[in-house]
Computed example of a mutant assay.
Amino acid sequence: MATRPRVSVAVTIDYEALRREPDLEAHDLIAYDATDQLLVRRAAELRDNFSGEKPGDTVVIGERHGAITLSLVLPQEQGGHGLTGVRVFQDTLLNERALMCNAARLGLEGEFPFTREELGRDLVKGAKTVLLQLPKSLDELAEIAYWVATNADPEATLIAGGRVKHMTLAQNEVLSRFFTTVQAERAERKSRLLIATGPVDDPADPPFPVTGVDADLPFALHAYGATFGGPTLDHGSRLLLRHLPEIAPEATRIVDLGCGNGSLAVAAALARPTAQVHATDQSWAAVNATNATARWAGVSDRVTVTRADGAEAVGDGWAELMLVNPPFHAGQVVSEEIARTLIRGAVRALAEGATILVVYNSHLGHRAVIEREIGPTQQVARDRSFTVVRATKR
């Protein structure tokens, strides 16, 4: 692959000032890593320190807390590159909020020199450089690669980076379905970049949303690349749904926290024809997947889907029944605190005497948290992997 000669690039924004807030924070979690820094440095080298850059030429996908975007847009006197019109896509709402918080923390105010876009044609149309934090999911990578290959400038460069311990040859193979050249660069500081150029002729239609059926469900599931679990019914949700008919059968205001592909929300709506269901998830892919699942199941008039952090979009005391299959990871970070934060935040939205039904990995100690935060708790079901409990708000 022919590239421009490397130039000396110094990017020295105040990375130590960045925070993960309001994303999960802990003493051993930081808001940037070597991949963020490597992506920006390599992009500057390939584009001669962004000489001649026009607004909209650069796109950032998979930004987590702002390290990439802010390195690009902060003025040069603050160690950035002073770019404008940078387009950014972040699947999770907390990552979006962290970017905005860090932008303010580093002095950006008023009209920001970047725009947030949804994943699709408008995000990457005509882009010359696309910087990508490699996603965990190969399906998500394929969805992103498709949009870049079919809508960015034909001479565009996709620079994808990740921590070496999370990278596999399968990522190269996915990119090779959409680009004629995929080059892995030498690892630096435990991070590595993949450089993809030359879109293939007539790549396959976008593979998303995808659809799946399950014998235990009277409807099809839909999913986008970043939808957790894809178009399948995960084991925990399956166990919960077996007991849903007997739990608070009179409830007509139901909330599904962390709706994913919509399996719980749509099943509840179909099982209770008079119920209104409010499904929430902070993932763009999950919200779109649940909307698609509800639409094809014919219940979109009774299932409201909101991109939100936990129960923040649900009115005080609105929920008579809440269904929760909490996540255990945020990106590559695995933590029990994610689920516990979700449970604590649910209290306000529960009506007095309301029921919350939670499924979780059996080895986790969530029951004590549920009983302390919500109220009296009983085990509904348990198998080798999962436990389902119900609690009544005291």
Rank of each mutant, 00 (worst) to 15 (best):
A381Y: 07
R348K: 15
R384W: 02
L323P: 07
G79N: 10
S335K: 07
L134W: 03
R340D: 05
G229I: 06
V182D: 01
L94E: 08
E173T: 14
F386Q: 01
D57P: 04
T180W: 02
I254W: 03
P154S: 08
A308H: 02
G230T: 08
A330M: 05
L83I: 09
R384S: 15
A285V: 09
W147G: 03
R390C: 11
G236Q: 01
N95M: 02
G52Q: 01
V314P: 02
D234N: 14
N325Q: 08
W296H: 12
E143F: 10
S335A: 15
P326Q: 05
G258T: 11
E63S: 11
T58C: 15
Q37E: 10
L46C: 06
D301I: 05
L158C: 13
T280K: 06
E111C: 04
L364T: 11
D91F: 03
F114K: 08
G298D: 01
W318T: 13
V210P: 00
E63P: 08
E188L: 14
A170E: 00
T355E: 02
L134A: 15
L39M: 09
V359F: 12
A292C: 12
G161K: 07
T197H: 05
H363E: 01
D14E: 09
G229L: 03
I195A: 12
E25T: 15
S51V: 15
E118D: 13
R238H: 13
D36T: 11
P327W: 07
L93E: 06
A103R: 05
A286D: 00
L193H: 09
G107V: 09
F112H: 13
L123A: 10
V305I: 11
N49E: 00
I247P: 10
